[in-house]
Structures are given as C-alpha cells and as structure tokens.
C-alpha cells in the first residue's frame, strides 16, 4: 500500500465523524420498528456515505448517491410504505424471537470477523494481482485531464461499454417488469 495520503487531522476528523454518523444511523435504521422511521435513518446513512465518497475523491459517485439513492430509490421506498400504509402497529410485529436475535448477532459477528480479516491490508495486497496493482497505481498517480467526472467516464465508455449498454437493457426489462407486476388485473381470471 502506498504511503498514507490522508494525513491532515481535519481530514481524519471528518472521516471519522461521517463514519460514525453512518454507523449510528445504520444501527438506528435496523432497530426501528416503524418502517418510515427506519427509512429516514437509512437516508441518513446514505447522506453520510455520500460525504465519505467526497472525502475519498469520488465526487461523481457522491452526487449519484444523493441523486439516485437518496433522491430516487429511497423516495420510492417511502412512497410504497405510505401507499401500503405500513406504519400501523399491527404491521410492526415483525421481529423474530429472542433466540433469533442472538443467533443473528452471532452469525453477523462471525461474518464481520471474516470480512475484517480479509480487509487487512496485507491480505488485500495478496489478493490483487501485482500487475493490476502496478497498473492501477500508475493510473492513480498520473492526474487525468477532465476534472472529476473524466476518470470515471473514460473507462465507463471505453472498457466497460458493453456492460454499460447491458445495464440499459436491464433497466428496460425492469421497467417492463414493474409495470406488468404493478398493473391491476382487470379481467377476473
């Protein structure tokens, strides 16, 4: 790994600040019984993540996060929650038993331990092929012309053009699918 570039204290402070907000909001999100409240906490997580994206030099992604995730997807969620009127207490009894929680916590910790173990920098270095690492490091070291969007747009429309086009097909299918699913059956079949 390269020498740490995130040196400034203010930077570190900001990073930890938004990280803790994200974490706390996530915990709050997952423990809310009320779905609307949970959704609002999730929006909070996403905002915090958007801030972290900016700190990680991914300004375009941060914008997308705010626009697409918080702006579009979460609004749709809230919309559906309201539509189905899920705020009622009768719908809130969705938690499993005590043992379910304990078990879930245990499994979650196991997963966390494993992911953390994998996240160790030595492990990451080991997992990334050296030639790719060298290439990527070289690419990261040379400043790219085109501002903040250019570095993302260039590979998106060059190397990953086919995947990009395929996502448009995926979106089309999703549109058709949701329309069909959401359509009310008029015939009494």
């Amino acid at each position: 790994m390269q020498p740490n570039q995130f040196h400034s204290l203010a930077y570190s402070f900001g990073f930890y600040f938004f990280g803790l907000i994200a974490l706390a909001s996530a915990v709050a999100f997952v423990t809310r019984k009320n779905t609307v409240a949970a959704a609002m906490w999730l929006v909070n997580v996403m905002f915090a993540l958007a801030a972290l994206y900016v700190m990680l030099d991914a300004q375009f992604i941060a914008t997308m996060q705010v626009l697409v995730y918080t702006g579009a997807i979460m609004v749709v969620f809230l919309f559906v929650i309201m539509l189905l009127n899920l705020g009622h207490p009768s719908e809130l009894a969705d938690a499993r038993g005590k043992w379910g929680y304990v078990l879930a916590l245990f499994v979650g910790l196991a997963l966390l331990a494993e992911v953390m173990a994998l996240n160790r920098s030595s492990t990451i270095d080991k997992m990334i092929p050296p030639d790719l690492a060298a290439k990527a490091a070289a690419a990261a070291a040379t400043p790219v012309a085109g501002g903040i969007i250019g570095p993302v747009a260039a590979p998106l429309f060059k190397e990953y053009l086919l995947a990009f086009e395929l996502t448009s097909v995926l979106l089309l299918a999703a549109i058709v699918g949701s329309v069909v699913l959401g359509k009310r059956r008029t015939d009494a079949r």
Binding site: Q2, L132, A133, K135, A136, A139, V144, P151, V152, P155
Partner: peptide, 8 residues
Amino acid sequence: KLYGAAGQ
C-alpha cells in the same frame, strides 16, 4: 482511491 477509477 488506490487502484484506479474502475471501482467507481
């Protein structure tokens, strides 16, 4: 941040 824009 380390390995290039492909992640984004």
